[in-house]
């Protein structure tokens, strides 16, 4: 029944250090459905359960009483092929450059596909393709040592290391954390291009509403281990009071547009970029003139 969905999560709960005095619930009855090719942003404060949730999706944390289907397959069943699952669901952790360990860029990106059993021409092809997807020139970079690369380049190498496994679902945990604005924009552009070129399903964990506004089809807000709100960004940002109450806030331009509406100026508040907001106001200005 769930074949047409990329991800289906039902009644997922998880408690850290269960059955000890230190037990702390990290997820409570999470339910989610993601369509193939959808771009989903997962937002929430530290400790809201986002990271715990995504680690369930490729079997790094066992499912427990809830159930998860990936491409229609129940991953909680005994005998589930975890390697196969991890190939299908690529997971890029926070600060992924910290996991780079090989002496050359090529060798590190090849680690995943090699574990899948690829070698020779096929392996080279996979690495080349992955590097292309993050726009690292194959010939210029393959023999370079990761130690010589800039932060942004290294992060792209790490992302390519997951892409090389050719997952159909790509999960990125705060891929822009700690980057400067230029590198951050580059990485976000990469992800957007990746999504549109390959048609992959993408789950992006982020702290920043501004960051996800332009990219995501669906924004899911985690709070205290549960999904508190969800919807397409345009609609979701209208619920600014609720978002603020969750300690998240909305992009500044939404607050400006809402401020105008509150003062009786009729503009559409469902904007995502400053350009859209400017167009709204300019239109209104010309109407008045």
């Amino acid at each position: 029944m769930n074949v047409e969905k990329a991800i289906v999560v039902r009644n997922l709960s998880y408690t850290y250090q269960a059955n000890t005095p230190l037990a702390s619930p990290a997820l409570r009855n999470v339910e989610m459905e993601v369509l193939p090719g959808q771009f989903v942003a997962i937002i929430g404060q530290t400790g809201s359960g986002k990271s715990t949730f995504i680690q369930h999706l490729n079997g790094l944390i066992p499912t427990g009483p809830g159930r998860i289907w990936i491409d229609g397959q129940d991953i909680g069943l005994k005998g589930t092929n975890l390697k196969g699952l991890r190939q299908k669901v690529g997971l890029v952790f926070q600060y992924p450059e910290h996991q780079v360990f090989e002496e050359t860029v090529f060798a590190d990106i090849a680690f995943g596909p090699k574990n899948q059993g690829y070698s020779g021409e096929l392996l080279v092809e996979k690495v080349r393709r992955a590097m292309g997807l993050v726009q690292l020139d194959y010939d210029a970079f393959r023999e370079r040592s990761p130690l010589e690369l800039s932060g942004g380049q290294l992060r792209r190498v790490a992302i390519a290391g997951v892409l090389a496994m050719e997952p159909s679902i790509m999960i990125l945990d705060e891929p822009t954390a700690g980057l400067d604005p230029k590198t951050r924009d580059e990485i976000l552009e990469q992800i957007a291009r990746l999504h549109s070129e390959t048609g992959m399903t993408v789950l992006l964990v982020s702290h920043s509403m501004e960051e996800v506004a332009r990219l995501a089809d669906l924004v899911v807000v985690f709070h205290d281990g549960a999904i508190a709100l969800q919807g397409p960004p345009r609609e979701l940002f209208q619920r600014d009071a609720e978002l603020t109450a969750l300690g998240l806030g909305v992009p500044q331009i939404i607050r400006v547009m809402k401020g105008l509406v509150n003062q009786g100026i009729a503009v559409d508040t469902r904007v995502l970029t400053t350009q859209e907001a400017a167009d709204q106001i300019i239109q209104r200005w010309h109407k008045n003139a």
Partner: peptide
């Protein structure tokens, strides 16, 4: 623990 998970996600055993 974190690095272990990250490498597992890349198929490490």
């Amino acid at each position: 623990e974190k690095i272990m998970k990250a490498q597992k996600a890349r198929g490490a055993d």
